[in-house]
Simulated scan of single mutants.
Amino acid sequence: MNVKIKRLSEHAVIPKYAKQGDSGFDLVAVEDVLIKPGETRKVPLGLAFEIPEGYELQIRPRSGITSKTKLRVQFGTVDAGYRGEIAAIVDNIGNDLAKVQKGDRIAQGVIAPVIKATFEETDELSESERGDKGFGFTGVTI
Score class of each variant (00 low, 15 high):
77 T>Y: 01
102 K>S: 07
44 P>Y: 11
51 I>L: 02
90 V>L: 11
76 G>S: 14
72 R>V: 08
84 G>L: 01
111 I>C: 12
35 I>H: 06
98 A>I: 00
56 E>G: 02
100 V>E: 10
87 A>E: 11
41 R>P: 00
99 K>T: 11
42 K>G: 09
74 Q>R: 12
95 N>I: 05
60 R>S: 01
113 P>R: 15
100 V>G: 08
59 I>F: 09
111 I>D: 13
47 L>F: 09
76 G>P: 04
115 I>S: 09
48 A>W: 02
92 N>V: 10
62 R>Y: 07
40 T>N: 06
82 Y>D: 03
82 Y>F: 15
65 I>M: 14
68 K>P: 02
113 P>Q: 14
115 I>A: 10
35 I>T: 08
60 R>I: 01
51 I>Q: 10
43 V>T: 06
79 D>H: 08
36 K>C: 03
93 I>V: 15
71 L>C: 03
56 E>C: 09
34 L>I: 04
70 K>V: 01
60 R>N: 01
65 I>W: 06
98 A>C: 06
84 G>D: 03
112 A>F: 00
47 L>Q: 13
99 K>D: 00
79 D>A: 09
108 Q>S: 03
94 G>C: 10
58 Q>G: 12
63 S>R: 13
68 K>R: 15
71 L>T: 06
45 L>Q: 04
107 A>W: 00
62 R>I: 07
47 L>W: 07
51 I>V: 15
75 F>N: 03
103 G>N: 12
67 S>I: 13
103 G>V: 07
80 A>Q: 09
37 P>Q: 02
105 R>H: 14
38 G>F: 08
60 R>A: 03
107 A>C: 02
58 Q>H: 14
83 R>K: 14
106 I>H: 11
71 L>V: 03
61 P>E: 10
40 T>L: 12
99 K>S: 04
86 I>A: 05
63 S>V: 05
96 D>V: 02
51 I>D: 11
56 E>Y: 01
110 V>T: 06
61 P>D: 12
84 G>H: 02
59 I>R: 06
92 N>S: 11
35 I>Y: 04
66 T>V: 11
86 I>L: 08
76 G>R: 05
68 K>W: 01
62 R>V: 07
36 K>R: 14
75 F>E: 00
81 G>M: 02
70 K>A: 14
81 G>V: 00
85 E>Q: 15
35 I>D: 07
110 V>F: 01
94 G>L: 06
37 P>N: 01
35 I>M: 04
41 R>A: 12
57 L>T: 05
56 E>D: 13
85 E>P: 04
